[in-house]
Simulated assay, not measured.
Amino acid sequence: MMSVENFNEIKKTSFWVSQLFILVSTVVGVFLAANQGYQQAVQFENMTSYKENYYLQKSLQYELQDNIAILKELMIRLQDPNYFGARNESPNFYSLVWENMKYSKTTLGTPPEFLRLAQQFYRNIATTQQKIAKGDISIPSGIKQFQAQIDIIEQQLIPALEKSTEQIKKELDGTSVIL
């Protein structure tokens, strides 16, 4: 038979063992909960970033398409011999998206080659227009340069933006993010 003293000793040992298990399980539980919370926060941030980048790229795409239409109208006016102000007319581009990209943290999430092509388009169009206005180049030569810039945007940048936004859309499929 077991003595009272041995019985009390067993009770003390089992008490401390149970306390140790409670402590370990609490620490593991807190760690797992914190880890899961962190993963959810990172996932939320990624989804938000994807959504913002989708809208930024789509908006840039639409703005560029609208500006190409404006440039094509200018090119038609430049070829009209009865329109004397054409040489000094500059395209009145929409620039809301392009200008606001300076202040958006999402801009830096946009692939650099997209930004580079858009920047070159705006810069080269402005330079060509200035040369036409000053008479440094002929109108037909300027129109060829305009068309070269349009071709780059229509053949390279617009398809790349469409492909990128489709990829982002695929990433967001199956999530609760609505585009």
Rank of each mutant, 00 (worst) to 15 (best):
N82Q: 14
T13A: 14
I143W: 08
I152R: 01
K12V: 03
Y94F: 15
R87S: 15
I76A: 05
I150D: 03
L20I: 01
M2W: 11
N35E: 04
P159Y: 07
I168K: 02
N46D: 05
S176W: 13
W98S: 09
Q61N: 07
R123M: 15
P159G: 07
K11A: 12
Q43P: 01
K12R: 13
E5W: 02
Y38V: 03
E171W: 04
F31V: 08
Q147V: 05
E9V: 09
A86R: 04
L157S: 01
A148W: 11
N100A: 08
Q79H: 11
E154N: 15
L64Y: 02
M101D: 06
S141M: 15
A118N: 06
K170P: 01
Q156S: 14
K102W: 11
Q145F: 05
I76M: 01
E171M: 12
F121H: 01
K12M: 04
I70F: 11
I125T: 00
E113K: 08
S25M: 07
Q79T: 10
A34P: 01
Y103G: 06
M75P: 04
Q79Y: 06
N35M: 00
N53R: 15
T175K: 10
S104Y: 01
T107V: 14
E166F: 09
L179Q: 12
E5C: 04
T107Y: 13
L108I: 13
S3T: 15
F114S: 08
A33C: 08
Y54I: 08
F7Y: 12
L78W: 09
